[in-house]
Design a protein around this nucleic acid. Structure first.
Lengths: 189, 189
DNA sequence: ACCTGAACACCGTTCAAGT
DNA sequence: ACCTGAACACCGTTCAAGT
């Protein structure tokens, strides 16, 4: 007799293949960026290319899967900053955390920027959560007088992505300096 | 009898093909970014793919050729800013001009960032000139007390490229705001 | 239910053969 | 001196055939 639940547990080999594909993708994205050849990912995972497409119909679906754990960790950091840190410190730490995250793979900042406004993207839900955290942390900083009135949430999101890009294409040091300089001028005078 | 100069005038058909390739590349890069398929460029120019490679052995050589006139115009702006504008205004205008330039094609900011430190790049000479202008304009702003002592040339170059990236992947508006905010905090307090 | 791999399209790059 | 386009390698994506 069937379990009756709509959500069936996948077959064991399928679960194993998905896990191997995600691990191989993480490795390939880390080495070659989010544009890494999917054929190489499948080969490294020891499965046929059709298996990859069977589980991940688009490249972004694979990227979303690879980011699952990283996003869990990132949002945990967000919760902790909201709960335990002073508003100004929390805001600065959040911007740095997201910028660091978006620089995990070359090309990731582009994917995130594109997914922010694309509801069809498998990353859209994560991006919306990211925007929501940014909004809450920024609002708290505003209430505490740690963020100037003219500074918008979009300013912060653009800064986080821009800093991630600088981290990848210039240097981590320059990225930190861009964040410091911009945040300094987003504080009240 | 030969002219005796080392630099011969190219054959007429070669000159025409180069001009067509550059025009087709400008169009393709504008539409699809600097990663646009070279095969399509050759097709649009009405030449065989081998002709493209004969004139431009690397993609960057073609990009450099396409940017020739744009860079001439950009450096003319730089000279004019140095000659005719007050130091603070010249610096802000220069950052905006370069950021706008580096956003001409999707992917161009990446190419510029990579070419800044790569002497093998056909774009390296242009990037060096770009860095030199930035240095002269920034030094002038420093002498006039319009740029804080801790602010480096590299900070400005990273900002220009980051703003170009934001212009392409977020919006021109956000790019302008990033420039305004960062420049504000690079001024003396 | 899931996996395989051939098949097709497309593009980067080289090079022997032409003019 | 320059042009052509076939040739090869590589990758994205689909799908008929298997288990």
């Amino acid at each position: 007799m069937a379990t009756g639940t709509g959500q069936r547990r996948p077959r064991a080999d399928a679960r194993r293949n998905v896990a191997r594909l995600v691990a191989a993708a993480d490795e390939a994205f880390g080495r070659s960026g989010t544009d890494a050849p999917l054929e190489q990912v499948a080969r490294a995972a020891g499965v046929a290319i059709g298996t990859l497409y069977g589980h991940f119909p688009h490249r972004r679906a694979l990227i979303a899967a690879v980011l699952r754990e990283r996003h869990d960790a990132l949002f945990a950091v967000g919760e902790e900053l909201l709960a335990d840190r002073p508003p100004a410190e929390a805001l600065a730490a959040w911007v740095r955390a997201v910028a660091g995250h978006a620089a995990t793979y070359r090309g990731l900042a582009e994917v995130i920027a594109a997914s922010l406004g694309d509801e069809a993207s498998e990353l859209h839900a994560d991006c919306a959560r990211l925007a929501s955290f940014t909004h809450r942390i920024a609002a708290r900083a505003r209430r505490a007088g740690a963020l100037r009135r003219g500074a918008t949430d979009d300013d912060l999101v653009a800064l986080m992505n821009a800093a991630a890009w600088v981290r990848v294409h210039h240097s981590p040091h320059q990225a930190d300096r861009l964040i410091d300089a911009t945040l300094a001028s987003l504080r009240p005078t």
